[in-house]
Amino acid sequence: MSVPPSRAHSEVFSASQYGATTVVRPRAPINYFILPSAILHVVGLACLWALWYYLRFTTVFPYHHRVFYCRDVHLYKPNFEPEDFNVYVSYPLLYVLAFTLPPLVMLIGEIMFWLFSTKPRKTVYANCGECKVHLFTRRLCRFVAVFMCGALITQIFVDTIKLMTGYQRPYFLSLCNVSITACTAPLEHSPSPSPHLACNFRGADELRYAWLTFPSLHAAFSSYSAIFASCYIYYMINLRGAPLLRPFLIFGFIGLAIVDSFSRINGYKNHWRDIWVGWIIGFLIAWFLCYCVLCFQEVYHIVVEKTPVVEERVSPFFSWFRLPRVQAPSVKEEYVVYEEDVPQEGTVPRHRRNRDRQYEVTTTTESFHRTISPPQQHNGGYNY
C-alpha cells in the first residue's frame, strides 16, 4: 500500500519534475526568552504584592514614635468621621479607581490600535513554532505589568517613609487626649523615647494610623495613576476629528487626583506638605516608567529592507466592514517660471523692469501648459 506524499514532499517532487529549484520557506524566528521572562515578572510582582500587604495591612514593621509638642495647635484639628466630610474618598474606593481605571484605558486603547492600525505586524513565536503570541497580547501584558509594578512600588515607598518619619496627623492630639502632666518641662514635649505614654487613648491601631501621615498615600497613588494614564492617552489617542478628546481625558484623570488629594486637607487627615510630597513621588515614578521603561508610541512592525514598495496592511475593522473610501488627488501645484526677453538691468528703468516678462506656469493638477502675461503688460490695446 502506497502512502501519499506529504505537502513538503509534493513541493520537492513537483520542483524536481519540472527542473525548477526547491522553494524553501523562511521560518519565523522563535523567541526563547518570552516564557522565562514572563515567569520572572510574575514572581517579582508577587513579591511586591506580599511586601505591600505586610506594610499596609499588618503591624509587622514598627514605626518611629516621633516626639511631639503637647500644645501644638497644628495637631489639635477635629477628628472627622466619614459622614462629616464634604468629599470623602475611602481607601477601598482609592484602590478600586487607581488599580482599575488605567488598565481599562489601556485595554480600550489597545483594542482600537489593533482594529484600526494598518501597519504590518511582527510575528513572535514563544519557545516553539506553534505558540504564536499576538501583538495585542504582548503590548497589553507589557503595559499592565509595568503599571502594576509602579503602583506597588509607589505605595511601598510611601509606607516606608511613613514608618521611618512618624509624623502625626492634624487631628493627632484630639485623638490622643494628651495628659499635660506626662509632658516634660520646660518645653512640654512628650516623654522620650516613649511619646505614646502621654496619650490617654489606648487604641493601638487608631494611634498607629494617626502617627503616620507623611507623605499622603492618596496623593501619591492618585497622581501616579493619573500621570500614567495621561501619558498613555497622549501617545496612543490622536483623533483629528475629535481634537478635544485627548485633553478631556487627561484633565479628567488629573482632576480626579486633585479631588482625591484635597479631600484629605478638607477632612484634616493630612498636612499640606504630605500632599505636595505625595504628588512629587507619584509623578516621578510614573514619568520614569513612561519615558524610560515603556514606549507607548512604539509600533511592532516588520522592517523590510531594500524594498521600494511595501504592501499596506488592511486593518481588521475595514476587512469586516466595507466602508467607502475617497482618495482626493494632490492639489499641490509646482510652478516653473521662465523669463524671456528680459533686458539688461542697466538699459531699462526700474519701473519698467517687471512688466516685460512672460511666465510659463506648469501645474501638477493640469494636463496642459499655458503661457500668461501679467496684467500690467499691454501693447497699446486690449486683446480679446
Rank of each mutant, 00 (worst) to 15 (best):
117 S>E: 12
248 F>H: 06
74 H>V: 09
268 Y>L: 05
250 I>T: 04
362 T>Y: 05
135 L>M: 10
30 I>S: 03
270 N>R: 01
250 I>H: 01
367 S>G: 08
253 F>G: 00
90 S>T: 02
343 P>H: 13
16 S>L: 15
140 L>H: 06
370 R>W: 09
182 A>Q: 07
105 V>A: 04
58 T>W: 10
289 L>A: 11
71 R>L: 09
227 I>T: 03
116 F>R: 05
280 I>V: 05
216 S>D: 06
112 M>Q: 00
244 L>Q: 13
337 V>L: 12
229 A>I: 06
287 W>S: 11
363 T>L: 01
4 P>M: 05
80 F>W: 08
346 G>F: 15
71 R>D: 10
253 F>S: 07
58 T>A: 08
312 E>G: 08
150 G>M: 04
143 F>N: 02
7 R>M: 06
194 S>L: 03
234 Y>R: 06
261 S>Q: 00
239 L>S: 09
96 V>S: 03
70 C>T: 02
86 N>A: 03
325 R>V: 14
338 Y>C: 05
95 Y>I: 02
9 H>N: 06
67 V>H: 01
375 P>K: 08
55 L>A: 03
124 V>Q: 07
274 D>R: 01
91 Y>C: 04
70 C>P: 10
23 V>T: 15
228 F>Y: 10
374 P>C: 05
46 A>F: 06
246 R>S: 06
67 V>M: 03
172 F>A: 00
378 H>Y: 09
378 H>E: 07
195 P>D: 09
131 C>H: 14
365 T>N: 05
294 L>D: 03
27 R>K: 15
17 Q>Y: 15
379 N>M: 06
233 I>E: 02
198 A>W: 00
250 I>A: 04
231 C>Q: 11
119 K>H: 15
26 P>R: 13
189 H>D: 12
62 P>F: 10
40 L>N: 12
369 H>R: 09
296 F>A: 02
69 Y>P: 05
216 S>F: 01
46 A>C: 10
249 L>S: 05
331 V>C: 14
87 V>L: 05
12 V>R: 02
298 E>P: 04
65 H>D: 15
170 P>G: 08
84 D>G: 07
31 N>I: 11
321 F>W: 09
344 Q>L: 14
147 F>C: 00
380 G>P: 08
287 W>T: 03
304 V>G: 09
118 T>G: 04
183 C>V: 13
123 T>G: 09
109 G>L: 00
175 L>C: 04
171 Y>E: 06
23 V>Q: 15
350 R>P: 07
207 L>A: 10
9 H>Q: 08
25 R>A: 14
27 R>H: 14
80 F>M: 14
168 Q>D: 12
111 I>A: 00
205 D>L: 06
312 E>F: 11
76 Y>D: 13
13 F>W: 13
346 G>W: 12
160 T>V: 14
143 F>I: 04
167 Y>M: 07
91 Y>K: 06
